[in-house]
Deep mutational scan, measured.
Amino acid sequence: DRIFMTRTEALEFLLKAHQTAVDKIGHPSHKQTPADHAAIEALDRLLLDVRARRVDQFQINASAAQIIVTD
């Protein structure tokens, strides 16, 4: 599946995904793992790359739809 978004929409989408990941590892019942921190770092890099126009398409994980940034 493909989803087309403007750059602004894609950045909002990534910010929400980032916040969800941060909230998940901050929850008291969740045991933090290196994979959790790696996922947040990957989202940080992706946010910067989309914002800087170095990336025009991405996929958060293998089961997610491919996001295509349109400007």
Rank of each mutant, 00 (worst) to 15 (best):
K31W: 09
V69K: 01
F13P: 00
V69F: 03
Q57L: 08
E12Q: 13
R45L: 10
F13H: 09
P34M: 06
V55H: 02
K24S: 06
K24H: 11
M5A: 01
D36H: 05
L46A: 01
R53Y: 15
I40C: 03
L46Q: 01
H18Y: 13
A38W: 09
I25L: 07
L43T: 01
T6C: 04
K31F: 15
A21L: 15
A65L: 12
L14K: 00
D44C: 06
D49L: 13
R53A: 13
L46W: 02
A42R: 13
E12L: 11
E12S: 15
Q59W: 12
F4Q: 07
G26N: 15
T70E: 09
E12N: 11
N61T: 12
P28M: 05
A39D: 08
A42I: 12
R45F: 05
L43E: 00
A64V: 11
V22G: 02
A38M: 13
L15A: 11
I25G: 04
T8G: 09
T20C: 05
H18P: 00
K31D: 13
Q59L: 07
I3Y: 07
Q66M: 15
I68K: 05
D49P: 00
H37V: 14
T33E: 15
L14A: 00
L48E: 13
T33W: 08
D44V: 14
T70H: 08
P28S: 08
Q66I: 15
S63T: 09
L14N: 00
H37W: 15
R53G: 14
A35L: 09
E41N: 11
I68S: 06
D36A: 04
F13V: 04
Q57R: 14
V22E: 04
T70M: 14
I60R: 00
R45T: 07
Q66H: 06
D23Q: 10
A65G: 07
L46C: 02
R7W: 12
R2M: 10
A10C: 03
A35K: 08
Q32M: 11
T20M: 15
A21Q: 07
A52G: 07
I67K: 00
D56K: 14
S63F: 14
L47E: 01
N61L: 08
Q19L: 07
A42S: 10
L48M: 14
A65S: 10
H30Q: 03
